[in-house]
Every structure is written in C-alpha cells, then in structure tokens.
Design a protein around this nucleic acid. Structure first.
Lengths: 240, 240
DNA sequence: GTGGAATAGTTGTCTATACCAGTTGTATAT
DNA sequence: ATATACAACTGGTATAGACAACTATTCCAC
C-alpha cells in the first residue's frame, strides 16, 4: 500500500490512504482512527512521518486530534466547505432542499472583451456559454450563465455539463478549484428575468458573479447568477 | 529569549518571537528570515522544533517557504484579512474611498427575543444599540445598526464607539474576533430607508446581517446594514 | 460505594542525525 | 564571453528514540 522508494513522499501516500479509507466508509465519522504508533508499526515507517500525514489532514479538516484519547474522523467535508465556495447543488443540499436544473442553451462562442478579461484569455477565443435555470424543490430559484474557456475543458458536451462540473474537472482533468472571488449586488428584475423566474418586474433580485480559479491561479469559469430575492439569501462564514 | 524549562512549548515561544519580530519591523515584508539551521544554532534547539514553529506560522499565513531559497515574510496580515471579514472602514479604504460615519443614536436597551438568540444571551439582558449612517467620500452609502451585549464591553460610550470598534476590543479587552457569519439579501427601499440614503422608494438595496464571534465562540455583535445597491457591491474571496 | 493509586494506552514535545532536492553564486574550462 | 561544474547554501523528507501530558480503566483500600 505504501511504497518506500516512490518519488511521492511517504507522508503524502499515507494522507491519500487515510482519505480513501474515510471516503470508502472504512473509517466512520466520529470514530477513532488507528493510533500513530499503530500506523508506524503496520507500514514500517517512523511515527514522525505518520504525524506529518495526520497533521496535514487535521489542518485540512479531515481529522481532529485529542490528547490522550486519539485521532478522530471529522464530520463531512461538505458541511465545512459551505463556509465559502459552494456550487448551487451543494448550497441547496445544505439547506435541506432538493436541487435540479434545466439546461436552456449550450453554445460555443467567441468571448467578448469583458469575459475574456475576466477569464484571462484573448478576445474572440472560444468559450462555452451555458445557460440554466436552477430549481430548488422544483421551484425556480435562479438563472445562471456560465462561461468556461474551451481550451481548458475540451471535451465538454451538453450531457456531461449536466453533472456537477466541479466533479467532472477533478476526476477527468485531475485539477481542483482552489479559490474563487464573488461579487454580490442587489438589483431589480427586468422583463426577461421576471418571466423566467416567475416573479414581477421590479421585484428585487440578487446578482452574483463568481470567478473560480484552479490551483495554478488560472481562471476557470465565470458564472453570473440571478437569484429570486424572496427565496434566496446568500450565507457565508468567515474564519480568522 | 527562549526558556527551555518553561511549561509553554519551545516551538510556541519561537512562533511568538518571530511574530514579534515581524510586528516590530525587524523582519521586513518579503524579506528572508534566518534559516532553520540558524535558528536552531542560535537558540540551541533542534531544527525539527524550529520547523514546527515555522510550519505553524506558514499555515497561519505569516510566512511562506521556498525550497532552496529560504523562508519569507508575507505581505501584511490586513491585506489578507479583507478576503473576508471586513469592517466598513477597512472595506472602503481598500476600495480607495474615504470612509466616515455619523452617529444617529446610541442607546442601551433590553434585547428582544430575536437579538438575544443571535447573541446567545437572555431576553431583556441589555445591549448597546448603535445606529449610524456610513459615508464614503461624504456620500451616504449605508445605514447600519449594531447590537452589542453590554456585559461584554462595559465601558462603551458614544465617544469611543466612534473609533473602530474592533480595534477598541483588541486593545482594551485583549480579545480578538475570530469568525463571523454573514447573510446577504436583496430588497427594495422602504420610505425611511430611502430618505436616509437619499434614494427613491422601490430602489434596490442590499441587506447584510453579520454576527461576529470572539475567539471563544462567544457572539460579540450583530450588525444589520442597508446598502445602496447602486453604489455598493459586496466582494469577497474564498480560498481552498 | 467512594476515592485514589497503578497502569496502559493515547497524543504532544523535543532531540540528533541523515540524506534528498532545489537555488545561487563562484570558480573553472572552453 | 559563455558554458559547465562545483560548492555552499536553502528547505523537504525520514528515521529512531526519549520523555511529558493527558485519558480511561482497573483494582485496591477505606
């Protein structure tokens, strides 16, 4: 399971191993994991190396330590992630609602100047433009338009764009999103917005514009969302 | 400088020492700090102990490491903090505007049920209720009402409430704010809001409700703000 | 029963050492 | 002048062992 002569450090291998065990349900939530000495023994590695792996998982929020007792699996990662970047799907799930979406259009178009700037690409380079209605418990909640550079995700189709895009990226491109900026603005529904969302012209709406970045600080997607203000409030938690 | 037989761990002493050096300007921004081996030598401690201290400061954002080059002091902590919790003052400064405020009222009242719940106190316990108009470049930007438990900050007066409240707390009570939750909502201006902000009834406004928590997870203040949507967008950055 | 000591298990701190892997500047060879 | 090689630094990974601090359990004396 752990390769000693691998270029990838032992502590990192152990991290991945423990994460795997958690995801596969072999280490249950709130349960103790094997002790540091036990890991050291079974994998024939030093206890300090085990500590390095566990320390990283602790600071990533997977585990928590308790002196004299042991090290425990934390509650679901999802619950923590919503202290910030959340996809619509996760957001709604965390509120106890059932999310769904309807694809309105799926296009590949040249980027206009503003979009190109945000996504740090050349004007007229191609982007996917994906429009959706987002529903929660089958009631319209938001209109969403996403722009994604074609170059970054060549294989995107109408079908797989329907799954969680983030998951698609992490699994197929082995990249993950590390940062996002959001701008939130209040406005008033125009005629097409009102019609799509089933509200009246002049009703308040919440505009959210998010840019997500990959690990290498490359901007990955620009999402403009229009939320019904009567049904949606934006919630977030900040630490430190 | 470092006491070996102290109950406080050596790595923690070293952390405090390095933080001090940074705050006193003895270690400049972007400059290299002494190497791990150097610290170990001068304080006669193990290099691994030095690493433990530096690791903590790295994960707290004070330092960054670069293999082969050295360890460097990060840019100001303030600049990082505004990727999240921001007071109005810091927020406006970061946008290049000049913030000011006018005190509308300063009361001590018994908390109603909802406020008491948010601040985790008993109904009818006393709270400060502080109403202000917030200005940016002398133009009205927001209406703000803050509720703070009297018990937590006994000495608050009209005068010192005018300074940055956060600074007051950190300096006089040596407590600091570690976490905050915000809820952001779009709405439309009612008559008194419109009048105070100099806009029309029915114009869009952004409602922000923030609860700040001290290190010990005690809720410290509840702030309800009403922003002019034509002048203010809420911006924030999320990492990981 | 209650309190307290002994014990065995946990994580926490710390040392001393070794070698690996990047970076940089300098000396040398061409 | 321009490469190339080397040396001397940096942080990164890993080992083995020691003792401290804390928790839970067991057992014994009262």
């Amino acid at each position: 399971m752990i390769k000693k002569n691998s270029p990838v450090p032992i502590y990192h291998q152990l991290e991945e191993y423990i994460k795997q065990q958690i995801e596969n349900g072999l280490l249950m939530e709130e349960a103790v994991i094997p002790s540091e000495r036990e890991y050291a023994q079974t994998f024939q590695i030093s206890r300090m190396t085990v500590r390095q792996a566990i320390n990283n998982l602790v600071s990533e929020g997977y585990l928590k330590r308790q002196k004299g007792r042991g090290t425990f699996v934390n509650k679901k990662k999802i619950e923590q992630e919503l202290q910030g970047m959340t996809s619509f799907t996760e957001d709604m799930l965390s509120r106890g609602m059932s999310p769904s979406s309807t694809l309105l259009s799926f296009q590949i178009i040249p980027a206009d100047k503003k979009t190109a700037t945000h996504l740090r690409m050349e004007e007229n380079d191609f982007v996917y433009k994906i429009k959706r209605i987002r529903l929660a418990d089958d009631a319209p909640m938001a209109l969403e338009t996403a722009y994604i550079p074609v170059e970054l995700v060549p294989g995107l189709t109408e079908e797989n764009s329907n799954l969680s895009l983030y998951r698609y990226i992490e699994e197929h491109l082995s990249l993950s999103i590390s940062e996002a900026t959001q701008e939130i603005e209040a406005s008033i529904a125009s005629s097409p917005d009102a019609e799509a969302l089933g509200i009246n012209i002049g009703d308040p709406i919440l505009l959210i514009e998010r840019i997500s970045y990959l690990e290498n600080e490359v901007p990955f997607e620009l999402v403009k969302s229009t939320f019904r203000a009567d049904r949606y409030r934006f919630v977030h938690t900040m630490k430190r």
